[in-house]
Amino acid sequence: MIMNRETIINSVLAALLIAIPLVAQAMGEIFIITLVTKVAILALAGVGLNIALGYGGLVSFGHAAFFGIGGYAAGILASHALNYQPIATWPFEISGSTQMIVIWAVALIASALAALVIGAITLRTSGVYFIMITLAFAQMIYYFAISWPAYGGEDGLSIYVRNGFPGLNTLDPISFFAICAVLLALALWFSAVLVRSRFGLALHGARQNDQRMKSVGIAPFRIKLTAFVISAMITGLAGALYADLNRFVSPSMLSWHMSGEIMVFVILGGVGRLFGPVAGAGLYILLEHLLGGAFDYWQLPLGVLLLLVVLFARGGLIGLLAGERKHA
């Protein structure tokens, strides 16, 4: 089998992502495991956005909404379970949960519903309207989270004990990393399959030419909405994991800076590349760690770097290393 350069780079990235925490575990460097876990979670959020942005051409500037909704799903369910307060008593009693599987299901469903509503409105528009309106809806949810006092409002919500997973001690950093890495691998596999499927081809077509899709009997709106919802669900799942990583969720997960950051992961790595978000999130966290340690105002050089990438290196990291994208 002849592997192309992108496949080799992807394999190296995957190997690094797994090897670094294992080495760190052996050396007792717990902090590094947490750092790589963060990379895996943020990469997962980016994998979600990449489906809408990279494959569907939908420049959503509001994916923090889904990231935050996933985070709040974790925070709210856990806080109700820990306080023994049911979430609702009518029409039937719903109690909280500290089981990750339950939390993930809720995060997936909640982000899907939010994306269905937001997508149904925003996909009526396109181009710059779409960018501004996705941003505006995310901002609406952000302000709602700030002014709604029940779950901490501006101060956010702490998760005192990390939520559980059957058979694993999730407080052990390497176990929690394993959970995140498996979910990231599943999401990568899913998006690779999705792109090659009939749906993926239709999405590719809808990105390039709406009219042509209509003329061959495919409704582009439904294709795009489905892609938007799937994309939001993956980002929402990442949000739930992120809340568990920090054991804290606050409106900042919903802020437009977060939307921008998730977008930056995708771009730094390479738009529409399978492993783009992994490379991007890795580079971002590395920069945050190296520059942030040396310089309080590390976002200044980050901004300059991002500007240079956008102006002069449009394929991102993977584009630099693997060359132009092959036509799908």
């Binding site: 960018i131 921008g260 977008m263 771009i267 738009v271 901004g303 991002l306 500007l307």
Partner: peptide, 12 residues
């Protein structure tokens, strides 16, 4: 997309 990113970088 490039415009959004470059101007986001300018904000930073």
């Amino acid at each position: 997309l490039d415009q959004v990113l470059a101007t986001f970088a300018l904000i930073l």
